[in-house]
Design a protein around this nucleic acid. Structure first.
Length: 578
RNA sequence: GCCCCCGUAGCUCAGUGGAUAGAGCAUCCCCCUCCUAAGGGGAGGGUCACACGUUCGAUUCGUGUCGGGGGCGCCA
């Protein structure tokens, strides 16, 4: 596939050559910006100002020398020196007129750039505890991670998507216990249901399922279940842990079945939910396999061998303060159990053992304090911590009736991702989530999302796509024939504006990949749609003058292709009609 | 107390070491005999929280103050 060389890159090359001639000993970065004002040209370059500073000369004089030294080019119409030393470049319109055909020849890959050069990159996201349905908070990480992964793949990275399944921890035991207690109630064994167990209705549904499959096989007496359990009002968590211990003792090998049943149900639901949301993973990595395969022990042994572990108060600690953390961290508790952190050390070492050059973890912003210890563990194991990039996503806070809604999974108080998708649709949900910078808090007003679903910017973009499809359908010709259209007929200011915008798409993809910021694509698409709508109102496409008609159809077909390509990066559909 | 994010138009938010800071919503005025009006054109609306510093140039970078949100466990 031919990668289109944008005018910006070609103009930058002209400047680089000129600067080498004017100042052979300096190597200033050539930065071109698209000026806000049309009178400042297609591109403005400020290189004369820092260069003037370095050479201790008047920037405008330096600019004049750069302009004089610029190689001749058929791209450039004229060059002006303005203000304190800007060099404004005005391109010949022909430059932009090449763009629509280049888009169509790229066959849906016009935005592809080779920023990544095939670097092997893993992106891990969502990784929600499989202890209940995904809620709208998880939705943001899912939409962000999936869109980012698409953007990075488009930018030339070899991307693998991974979900880390927390199937080994206490939360899963609490879920198994919660399910069992609901099941026991069906059997007539009434044990008071702890307030800090999982309250959601789905727990009862799983209990029903187990009862339907196995009758009273897992019944134990309420008295046995509560034997020796401290009262909940003294220490609610100890109460829960004692119930779990009793469950494991009373059920023996059957406990694993209940635990596994709850896990499979919730993980299956989660996978199903994400798939419907257009979010797919290459790998679902089980935390339990880290324990069972001895990977945790091996990882800790590796740290111990290099003197990064010590023992105190019966627990084993990682000296993370030696790597910039604010305090040392326990990896193996006094009771012999590994901490979640120990598993995470093994997991991250495993990621790099699998050959990834770079790993991106998408985490909720509440985990920011966790970064130094994980990076510290990598450094302690001799891995460059810079190869792990943690992309923090700020909270999505849900508002209902102007009130902040509770988002506790254990208390069963949340709006599920599934509910949200049903109410506003997958497209609007995907778009809404990435319309904000990831480090910006997202206020997700449910009522607004519902009531204004027709005003959601995603429809504005999809409408542009549908409008073009409608015109092309009315025309009834073959898209490939438009490649031969003479673009010289495109002279209207709105046509030129649209062609310029199309040329920016690869830059937007590159910027979104570089900054891990898929929202850049969303904003680009809105601008592109705006240019299309403006042109739609300014010029008829299906005119009698066939060469003009074909040139315009070529332009809007290219616009359709870029809208479709960009929306696909965000996981949003591009409908033919609305 | 320490750490992270944020503070830009009435509201929700983009944006940039550069020239006259933008969009959507809301308000007001226009535009369908015409390919989808889920659209377009125009108007009003700003001390880019505040102060100091770096710089030829700061809304952008740094420090501090104020304000909002979040996090700091031998939980996961």
């Amino acid at each position: 596939m031919t990668v289109y060389s944008p005018p910006k890159a070609r103009v930058a090359a002209l400047f680089a050559a000129a600067v080498r001639h004017v100042a052979p000993d300096q190597a200033p970065a050539i930065e071109l910006e698209r000026p806000k004002q049309e009178s400042h040209g297609d591109f403005a370059c400020n290189v004369a100002m820092p260069l003037g500073k370095q050479l201790r000369r008047n920037p405008r004089e330096v600019a004049a020398e750069i302009v004089a030294a610029m190689p001749a080019s058929d791209l450039v119409d004229r060059v002006e020196i303005a203000g304190p030393g800007f060099i404004n470049v005005f391109l010949r319109a022909q430059v932009w007129r090449e763009v629509p055909a280049a888009v169509l020849r790229a066959g849906g890959g016009f935005g592809r750039v080779d920023l990544g050069r095939g670097e092997k990159l893993q992106i891990e996201f969502v990784s929600a505890n499989p202890t209940g349905p995904l809620h709208v908070g998880h939705g943001r990480g899912a939409a962000y991670g999936a869109s980012l992964a698409n953007v990075l793949a488009h930018a030339g990275y070899d991307v693998k998507r991974e979900f880390y399944v927390n199937d080994a921890g206490r939360q899963m035991d609490i879920l198994a216990l919660s399910t069992w207690l609901r099941y026991l109630a069906l059997c007539g064994e009434i044990v008071p249901f702890p307030a800090n167990a999982y309250q959601g209705g789905y727990v009862g549904t799983m209990a029903d399922g187990i009862y339907a499959l196995h009758g009273e096989r897992y019944r134990r007496t309420a008295a046995d279940v509560q034997a020796g359990v401290p009262p909940a009002d003294e220490d609610a968590e100890a109460h829960l842990d004692a119930l779990i211990a009793n469950a494991k003792r009373l059920l023996g090998a059957d406990y694993a079945y209940l635990h596994g049943y709850a896990l499979e149900e919730q993980l299956g639901d989660c996978r199903n939910d994400l798939t419907e949301f257009g979010v797919c993973f290459d790998t679902w990595f089980s935390e339990r396999t880290l324990h069972e395969s001895g990977m945790i022990e091996r990882a800790l042994e590796q740290l111990r061998k290099h003197g990064h572990l010590y023992t105190q108060d019966g627990a084993h600690w990682f000296r993370s303060t030696a790597f910039g953390d604010e305090k040392d961290r326990v990896v193996q508790r006094e009771n012999g159990l590994y901490t979640y952190f120990a598993a995470d050390i093994a997991y991250h070492l495993n990621k790099f053992e699998r050959g990834f050059d770079r790993v991106i973890d998408v985490w909720g912003a509440d985990h920011h304090g966790y970064i130094p210890r994980v990076k510290g563990a990598l450094a302690a194991a001799g891995i460059d911590a810079e190869r792990l990039v943690v992309a923090l996503v700020q909270f999505a806070v849900l508002y209902r009736n102007g009130q902040k809604a509770s988002m506790s999974t254990r208390a069963g108080e949340y709006v599920t991702l599934r509910d949200l998708r049903a109410e506003v649709g997958n497209d609007a949900a995907r778009f809404f989530y990435v319309l904000r910078k990831s480090d910006q808090h997202l206020d997700f007003d449910l009522d607004l999302a519902k009531s204004q679903s027709n005003d959601n910017p995603v429809y504005y973009i999809q409408y542009a796509h549908a409008r073009i499809c409608s015109v092309l359908a009315a025309w009834g010709g073959v898209s490939a024939d438009l490649l031969d259209a003479d673009p010289a007929r495109l002279e209207h200011p709105q046509e030129l504006a649209l062609m310029r915008r199309l040329a920016e798409f690869p830059d937007s993809v590159a910027a979104a990949a570089r900054d891990l910021a898929p929202h850049i694509i969303a904003y680009y698409l809105r601008d592109l749609a705006a240019d299309l709508h403006a042109l739609y109102n300014a010029c008829p496409f299906l005119v009698d003058d066939a060469p003009l008609r074909d040139a315009r159809l070529c332009l809007i077909d290219a616009t359709r292709a870029v809208l479709s390509e960009g929306l696909a990066l965000l996981g949003v559909s591009a409908p033919d009609k609305m």
